[in-house]
C-alpha cells in the first residue's frame, strides 16, 4: 500500500520558528496598543460628559504612576508601529518620475516629514507649542 502525499502539520507556535515571523508578530501586536490609546481617549470624552470632577479624576488617573507607565508603553508601541509601517511604504506606493523609480528613502522620508508636520499642528492646536 502507498501512503498519500504527506502534509506536515503547522504548530500553533509557527511564528516562533524564525526571526522574521517574530518581527512580523511584534509589528502586528503594536496595533493593540494603538487601540488601547483610542479606548483611553473615548473614556476621557465620556468622563468629560459627566462633568468637571469626573474629568479631573480621569486626568489624575492618567498622571498616576500606573497611568504614566501605560502612557510610556503606548508611546513606545506607537513609535514602533509607525516606524515599521513607514519603512514598508515604498513597496506599497512606488513613485515613478518618467521612467525612473523614486528611491525608497525619499518616500519613507516624506512620511516622516508628514508625521512631524501633523504632530506639530496637533501640538499647536492643543496649546503645547504656543
Amino acid at each position: 500500500m502507498t501512503n498519500p502525499p504527506y502534509i506536515r502539520p503547522i504548530p500553533a507556535s509557527w511564528w516562533l520558528r524564525q526571526g522574521r515571523y517574530v518581527r512580523y508578530m511584534i509589528r502586528e501586536a503594536t496595533c493593540l496598543f494603538i487601540g488601547l490609546h483610542a479606548l483611553v481617549l473615548l473614556v476621557g470624552v465620556y468622563r468629560l460628559s459627566q462633568g468637571r470632577d469626573a474629568f479631573d479624576a480621569f486626568l489624575a488617573a492618567l498622571w498616576s504612576p500606573a497611568g504614566q507607565v501605560m502612557g510610556a508603553v503606548i508611546v513606545l508601541m506607537a513609535v514602533v508601529h509607525s516606524v515599521t509601517w513607514f519603512n514598508l511604504t515604498p513597496k506599497a506606493m512606488p513613485l515613478w518620475i518618467g521612467d525612473r523609480k523614486v528611491p525608497g528613502w525619499i518616500i519613507v522620508g516624506g512620511h516622516y516629514g508628514g508625521w512631524i508636520v501633523v504632530s506639530a499642528v496637533v501640538l499647536f492646536l492643543a496649546g503645547g507649542l504656543s
Binding site: 524564525q18 522574521r20 515571523y21 512580523y24 502586528e28 514598508l88 513597496k91 506599497a92 506606493m93 512606488p94
Partner: peptide, 25 residues
Amino acid sequence: TFVGACSEVCPKNVDPAAAIQQTKI
C-alpha cells in the same frame, strides 16, 4: 497581511509583497 517573507526569500528579486500591496491600492 504583509508578512513580507516572500520578498525576502525570492531568488529572483520579484518582490511579491510589493506587487500585492500595490494591487490592494
